[in-house]
């Protein structure tokens, strides 16, 4: 970036397609709901009520909300995997799984510039930077763990259709429900920590890059400097244009 020399020429880039944005916010909403209801299920409040038990269904409702949210979460997650194959290059699975040396080079660069705060060349990634993409790969693994452990716990208490029964093998793999629900509870903390760091970094990138990072998940646009187009440094996994 040519600091202070002149005013940048920025170009509008459609980074996050509408399905990605809908996925993102739906995911954010259901994760919030799942965490809140999950905490309640793990340690319910001490309710004081003069009503008969037959007139109340507090835990029942909370669990129902948790289960509905978990279905949305699961199928939203499946959709995102699908979109990783048909969406634009910023949504592609190659953003998350390293397939080139350039990916690792950019991760190292992000580590130096954004974490160690060393001075040097800023990375010019447009979508996720390589480090972010790789961390998202782990969030997808955490999604998978939560879905498998959650539906594993749910399988034996579900009475309806076949889908939850697909996870009936899970408790046996974990040696029973005791350990399974602990893993489910531990993994939730990964989501909380991730969310805090994620939201911070969105503000951070908006602040130091000035490309509209925060609003990009609203309209899908980021505003990219002209010289990035010239150097062709937008996608970490694609070979550098000469």
């Amino acid at each position: 970036m040519a600091n202070g020399k002149s005013v940048h020429k920025l170009r509008r880039v459609y980074v996050w397609e509408q399905p990605v944005r809908i996925y993102h916010w739906l995911n954010a909403l259901v994760i919030l709901v799942l965490i809140a209801t999950g905490f309640y299920i793990a340690d319910p409040l001490a309710l004081q009520s003069s009503k008969e038990a037959s007139q109340q269904f507090t835990m029942g409702w909370v669990r129902m909300i948790h289960f509905i949210a978990s279905y949305i979460f699961f199928f939203n997650f499946l959709f995102r995997i699908y979109w990783g194959f048909v969406g634009n290059k910023y949504a592609n699975w190659k953003q998350f799984i390293p397939t080139s040396r350039r990916f690792f080079r950019e991760m190292w660069q992000v580590f130096k510039m954004d974490i160690l705060m060393l001075r040097g060349k800023e990375h010019m990634s447009v979508g996720h930077n390589a480090m972010a993409g790789f961390i998202y790969f782990f969030t997808f693994l955490a999604f998978l763990v939560q879905c498998v452990t959650g539906f594993g716990l749910y399988a034996s208490m579900s009475t309806g259709w076949w889908f939850p029964k697909l996870f009936a093998w899970v408790p046996a793999m974990f040696g029973g429900d005791f350990f399974l629900r602990q893993v489910h509870h531990w993994t939730m903390w990964f989501f909380i920590l991730f969310t805090v760091i994620h939201v911070y970094l969105v503000f951070y990138h908006d602040y130091v890059e000035g490309r509209g990072e925060i609003s990009s998940m609203g309209g899908g646009w980021k505003f990219i400097e002209e010289d990035v187009f010239e150097k062709g440094m937008d996608v970490p996994n694609e070979p550098t244009k000469s």
Binding site: M1, V7, M117, Y200, V208, G210
Partner: peptide, 19 residues
């Protein structure tokens, strides 16, 4: 990290502000 950002990337941020 937020504090360090303002220290270490001062030039960058000032540049954006000036622009």
């Amino acid at each position: 990290h937020a504090v360090m950002t303002n220290v270490r990337k001062k030039k960058l941020i000032k540049g954006l502000e000036k622009e």
